[in-house]
Design a protein around this nucleic acid. Structure first.
Lengths: 257, 257
DNA sequence: GCACCCGTTCGACAATGTCGAACGCGGTTG
DNA sequence: CAACCGCGTTCGACATTGTCGAACGGGTGC
């Protein structure tokens, strides 16, 4: 049995399409997208529905993701050692910095958010756990890219979000080199106008970077307003983030450095 | 092709085991649990790993859930119309009641939490989105059970958590009948000692109950301390919850009743 | 060094999923 | 009002495909 099992691969492809596509999709739509006969796709969909991974609208007959998949997927967080260990420290980082905190891992060249602590004021914020962020335009992503053994930089994915977004592969590589030696990364209005983020790497017992922790918030609060600090994150916030990252790394068994 | 596709069903069973089981599992462990030969299980696992639904520890060789599954599963929330519409209202309910808010749906006889707003103080709270709560020992669950067309009451699942938990099927049915006519449910220390919750049903355009919204918090804040209110949720909080439920139902197209 | 348990590989068999055409249904169009 | 198109679904024959159980190789503990 050399190759992977087709039906499962196809089922996974369908789930991925349903996850990315706009809301609901029909059998024919999925079939053409995958280049498969309708009957085959329908058989797979029926099975996926039977196990609760997809649901079908009774009226339109179209398919969407199911609740069982959501529940199973969310229990990934319990298994994720990084997230488990990081829970307490991220709370205290949010309290110290008074900004929202996110923890992410590299997943297929993007940043997968595995934890999110809201900013400790009473503002309403959207939960971003499970979301994928662009790696080149966030502090979390830069930290992860810079410390990753394999060069996951895909020039085709360097989409520009704001004028400040770095879309040039060579320039980005230079930035990453600096991030690696400096030990932390920042993003100043590179993804969203007016938003700034700072992040530092989390390492495990082997010294491998397994994730990153960072804060994000409005530029007025995160950056200095005048003098040398203007346009760069405030030094105290940077040290808060780095201390939190070091604390989690120590919990994971990394040699305290 | 009458029956569902076996390999996909088996893959789903493996994922479910990995989701419920303690952290990581080995091939042999999964094989005996499913009554399948090791080779077969290994083939499925290899495929699941190939699509990113499971990951394998490089050293121990054991398997656990993968990040891709988590990401795909979490995008269920975007498709879920109930959750999308309920976002704003749950924020305002949290602000009015000053307690944490949860929204849930019935899933295989349990309550699947699809949204969770933290209590608007700065206390650290664990995110429960994706978790399954027992239906008989939570206000959300009682609302959902009471308004569900099919009787999903499974006497075997009426586990007792505290002295106040209702474990008798007949008594629970009576409680549910009252919940149905009254339009809201409460849980006073039935799941966790000292914790109280209140919930009301959310209906869609057809009048079908598609979910429930509720608040939960310590008994000292949620219940009256003396007089007639003692041991029952405070009337103003109940009306906050019911108003929020009505507002969301209206958003979903239900006839304002 | 032996015995055991693990994850993994392999090859033969037939059970299994795949395919494409046909069905029934709802909507829209002339 | 009928013809038509597109949808999700069903069906049966074929051979591709996944399944099985035994054997391999590397760990660990006695």
């Amino acid at each position: 049995m050399p190759g992977p099992i087709q039906s499962i691969e196809r089922a996974a492809a369908i789930l991925r399409l349903l996850s990315g596509g706009a809301r609901k999709m029909g059998v024919a739509e999925l079939a053409t997208a995958l280049g498969l006969p309708k009957g085959t796709v329908h058989g797979i969909l029926r099975t996926l529905q039977h196990v609760g991974f997809v649901e079908q609208s009774p009226d339109t007959g179209k398919y969407q993701l199911g609740a069982a998949l959501f529940h199973i997927g969310s229990s990934y967080l319990d298994v994720n050692e990084l997230r488990t260990r990081a829970l307490n420290w991220s709370d205290s980082l949010a309290a110290r910095s008074k900004e929202s905190v996110r923890i992410g891992t590299l997943h297929e060249g993007q940043v997968l958010v595995v934890h999110h602590v809201f900013r400790p004021d009473n503002s309403s914020q959207v939960l971003e756990v499970g979301a994928l962020l662009p790696a080149h335009a966030s502090a979390l992503g830069k930290v992860l890219l810079a410390n990753d053994p394999v060069d996951q930089l895909d020039p085709a994915r360097l989409t520009g979000f704001t004028p400040a977004t770095c879309t040039d592969p060579d320039r980005l590589r230079a930035v990453l080199a600096e991030v690696r030696s400096r030990g932390w990364a920042s993003d100043v209005e590179e993804m969203v106008e007016g938003e700034v983020s700072v992040a530092a790497p989390i390492r495990d017992r082997r010294g491998v970077t397994v994730g990153a922790i960072g804060i994000s918030g409005p530029i007025e609060r995160l950056c200095g307003l005048a003098g040398e600090d203007a346009g760069t994150p405030r030094a105290e916030l940077v040290s808060y983030v780095r201390e939190a990252a070091r604390a989690i790394s120590r919990d994971l068994g990394a040699i305290p450095w």
